[in-house]
């Protein structure tokens, strides 16, 4: 009997607390039922998912860096914004949108790697505050550079998806929302596959979990930290390029609200959990999209941020490490 029990496939990783899963399942059922009852509700939900995956992918970029170095990169949004300007410049030089898109992703990777090497590495291993301040400095620096080069005036880019509307039953779905969801999910899955199946990805996971032990088996953890920043920058660039068409205009403040929501999404998911970040982002996107029309007129656009963060605070007070985070044992 004991032998049999030992052979049973054990769960690969700890599942998030089941009340959270139940809650999510309930939310999904509620959304589906309501969507079937009301076309407008369905429309808002789909649009919510589209904004949500964008929050989620930027949140994922934050989580990526947080897992590797326990540091929140405050410049993540501005890095993404700068990359959107790069793409814009490339289209100005005559590249087609999707050529510019992929070239930008490559540039973003290099940009992330270089940023880590030049600015972050010198303060790596110092106090968390020191690193946070450096990322705040980066935030201001990138902002200044972009405004210097392109000015703060609004710019207009080609729309990648056009304004075609599909119909699913009675529910109109914008091609743009659909495109955003598809592109974001593709990049997130690619990242997941990279971490799951490649040697480099495995090394990065090992380095994030136990840097000392990883170095002993030959993982060049320092070099991989830079790769992590590169990947985070790529993910951020995707988020940025998907935010731009939703906002219709390009300006230096493009990613600031997105960054705030991405923070919220990452914390909601537990900061340690990539899946949590994505789920957190989508939940937040839907929540914010449905809120104005379902709060008896109380929540106007001015209150969106406070309400989102109040909700976040409530979650944190109930579960101080987010929905999918687990308490780590603290050394005294």
């Amino acid at each position: 009997m004991v032998e049999l029990a030992r052979k049973l496939p054990l769960p690969q990783r700890r599942f998030p607390a089941s009340p959270v899963l139940l809650l999510l399942a309930a939310a999904c059922i509620f959304l589906t039922v309501e969507s079937l009852r009301s076309t407008i509700f369905a429309q808002l939900t789909v649009a919510g998912v589209a904004t949500g995956v964008v929050y989620g992918s930027l949140a994922l970029a934050l989580v990526l860096i947080y897992r590797a170095t326990e540091v929140i990169n405050f410049a993540q949004g501005e890095m993404a914004m700068a990359m959107v300007y790069v793409a814009y410049q490339l289209t100005l030089w005559g590249l087609a949108y999707w050529e510019a898109f992929f070239l930008t992703l490559a540039i973003a990777f290099v940009f992330g790697v270089v940023t880590q090497r030049v600015f972050i590495r010198p303060v790596q291993g110092r106090s968390v505050i020191a690193v946070v301040i450096v990322t705040v400095g980066l935030f201001i620096l990138i902002d200044g550079l972009v405004e210097w080069k392109w000015s703060a005036n609004q710019r207009f880019m080609q729309a990648p998806f056009g304004n075609k509307i599909y119909h699913l039953g009675n529910v109109p779905i914008a091609r743009q929302d659909l495109g955003t969801i598809v592109i974001t999910l593709i990049s997130v899955s690619a990242l997941w596959a990279f971490f799951r199946f490649t040697k480099l990805g495995l090394g990065m996971r090992a380095g994030a979990l136990r840097p000392a032990a990883a170095r002993l088996v030959g993982v060049r953890t320092n070099a991989l930290l830079a790769v992590g920043w590169g990947l985070a920058a790529v993910l951020g660039a995707v988020a940025g390029l998907m935010t731009e068409p939703a906002e219709y205009v390009l300006q230096p403040t493009l990613m600031q609200p997105v960054l705030l929501y991405a923070f919220a999404a990452a914390v909601l998911g537990g900061l340690e959990s990539p899946g949590g970040a994505l789920v957190g982002g989508i939940a937040l996107g839907i929540f914010l999209n449905l809120l104005p029309s379902h709060s008896w007129g109380f929540v106007t656009s001015a209150l969106e941020l406070p309400v989102a963060f109040a909700a976040l605070l409530v979650v944190l007070l109930i579960k101080p490490t987010g929905l999918f985070g687990h308490r780590t044992v603290r050394k005294v």
Binding site: G203, A206, R210, A214, V217
Partner: peptide, 26 residues
């Protein structure tokens, strides 16, 4: 040089298989 440190240096969050793959990382 393979160094099995104090506490064995096992990556407890990863699977057995992934631990072995990490052994062959170099």
């Amino acid at each position: 040089v393979a160094h099995v440190p104090e506490g064995r240096g096992t990556f407890s969050e990863l699977t057995v298989w992934e631990n072995l793959r990490l052994g062959a990382y170099t």
